Simulated assay, not measured.
Amino acid sequence: MGAQDGPTLITSVQRAFRLLEAASAHENGAPAKQLARETGLPLATAYHLLRTLVNDGYLRKLPDGGFILGDRLQTLHTAGRAQALLSRVRPALAALRDELATAAYLTFYEEGEIRVAEIVDGPRAPRVDLWVGFEDAGHATALGKSVLRELDEEARKDYISRHHLADLTPRTITSAPELLRQLDSSPVAPAVTDLEEYALGTVCVAVPVYSGDTLGSLGVSLPVDRLSRLDQVRARLLPTANRVTRGLSLTM
Rank of each mutant, 00 (worst) to 15 (best):
G66Y: 02
D71A: 15
D136S: 07
T102F: 12
Q83K: 03
L76S: 13
E110I: 02
L96K: 04
R97N: 05
L130C: 07
A92T: 12
G80S: 12
V89P: 05
L62E: 15
G112K: 07
I114P: 01
A94T: 13
A92S: 14
G70M: 09
A79E: 13
L59H: 04
G80H: 10
D129Q: 04
E118S: 02
P123H: 11
G122K: 05
R115D: 00
A95T: 14
E99M: 13
I68W: 09
T102Y: 14
A140K: 01
T75V: 13
G133V: 00
D64E: 03
L73W: 06
E113D: 11
E113P: 02
A104M: 12
L100R: 14
A95R: 14
K61V: 15
R97E: 04
I114G: 00
E118D: 07
V116K: 07
D129C: 03
D71E: 15
I119W: 10
E99I: 14
F67Y: 09
L93D: 09
Y105E: 06
L59P: 00
G65T: 01
D98N: 01
Q83W: 01
L130P: 02
L85V: 13
T107L: 05
L69T: 09
F67V: 02
F134P: 00
A117E: 07
D121I: 10
F108T: 01
D64Y: 00
D121H: 15
I114E: 00
L86C: 03
G70W: 10
L93I: 09
G138R: 00
A92D: 14
A103M: 09
V120F: 10
L59Q: 05
D136E: 08
L59T: 06
R115W: 00
V128E: 03
A103G: 15
H139N: 05
V128M: 02
R72G: 04
E111P: 11
E113S: 09
G66A: 01
L62Y: 12
D121Y: 12
V128D: 01
G70Q: 10
D71L: 15
E135G: 08
Q74D: 08
F67R: 05
V128F: 02
Y105M: 08
G65S: 00
T102Q: 15
D136W: 02
A104T: 14
L100D: 09
R81N: 09
P123S: 12
L93M: 11
V116W: 06
H77L: 09
E118M: 08
K61W: 10
L86Q: 08
L100H: 07
